[in-house]
Simulated assay, not measured.
Amino acid sequence: MGVHDAPAWLLPAFARNVAEAGGTAPADEVRRTAEDLLERWTRPERHFHNLKHLVDVLARVDELDEEAHHPELVRLAAWYHGAVFDSAERKAYANKGGEDEAASAALAREQLTELGVPEANAQRVAALVQALVRHAPDPHDIDCAVLCDADLAMLATEPQRYKAYLHDVRSEYAHLPVEDYLRARVRILHKLLARPSLFVSPLAQPWEEPARQNVSAELQRIEKELARLDAQRAAQTADGDAPDASGTTTP
């Protein structure tokens, strides 16, 4: 899905959210900012954190927005939450992957201020984006909870969509060796399952059980694969150390 494939409602929706947040910039300037964001979301190195993911998060916000105090700010935060992304190896996958929340928050603050959004609202959007570093919102901050829940909602999809999600995430980190990626993924899954609850907002509670089922099943599959790799390595090491016919040890 490229910029030209973006749903027709996306640009008008962004403009509406900017206006609802107090933006005063001319329509053409708002449109240019939206197009810049779409260009970021449609770069070829993005296989999961792409325009489809943005649309999915916005759709999930729509499902939860009756709980939000300022849904327009939550939607703007969704637009910016992965605007800065780099899946290069220097961005360790186990350390939040390629999403750069700090840089994305700074971009939100800069661009929204340029669009005439009052400083307090621009700062609030930036704070919501920054909160996704931990995905552990204060349950009393319902806007933050809605954004975090919308971003994690992919965990609760039906098994086939979850499988496609895993394929896309792996594609983004194809430069990582298989075992490195799997061990990083295991650490992430253990952290998720250790949480008392994956979702915080009341309307997202039905997502809890399917999400835990998906994550647990994935963890079991990966642990089996890692056990297989460990056994394979042990067998190769044993073969390499076995004495040869002359009585010496093979290097």
Rank of each mutant, 00 (worst) to 15 (best):
167 H>T: 10
184 A>G: 15
205 Q>S: 02
166 L>Y: 09
233 R>P: 00
154 M>E: 14
175 H>D: 12
210 P>I: 09
117 V>N: 05
221 R>I: 01
172 E>Y: 11
148 C>E: 14
218 E>R: 05
176 L>P: 00
140 H>Q: 14
215 V>Y: 09
138 D>P: 04
217 A>E: 14
112 L>D: 05
201 S>W: 04
210 P>E: 06
175 H>E: 13
152 L>E: 07
211 A>E: 01
124 R>V: 07
233 R>K: 11
151 D>G: 06
120 A>R: 15
114 E>N: 01
171 S>F: 08
226 L>F: 03
137 P>N: 05
157 T>E: 15
203 L>D: 10
153 A>E: 10
209 E>V: 15
189 L>G: 00
133 V>Y: 10
185 R>G: 02
136 A>E: 15
111 Q>N: 08
130 Q>K: 13
143 D>R: 09
154 M>C: 11
143 D>T: 13
186 V>K: 03
135 H>L: 12
208 E>M: 02
131 A>E: 10
134 R>S: 13
215 V>G: 03
180 D>L: 14
200 V>Q: 01
128 L>I: 13
227 A>Q: 10
136 A>Q: 12
195 R>W: 10
196 P>A: 05
146 V>A: 07
114 E>L: 08
183 R>T: 10
155 L>P: 02
189 L>V: 00
197 S>C: 07
130 Q>C: 00
126 A>C: 04
125 V>M: 04
201 S>N: 02
173 Y>V: 12
137 P>V: 08
226 L>P: 00
187 R>T: 03
112 L>C: 04
135 H>G: 04
183 R>W: 11
228 R>N: 00
228 R>V: 00
213 Q>V: 15
152 L>P: 03
179 E>K: 13
230 D>C: 01
113 T>E: 08
166 L>N: 14
120 A>S: 12
126 A>R: 03
208 E>Y: 02
145 A>W: 11
161 R>S: 13
116 G>A: 01
120 A>I: 09
142 I>K: 01
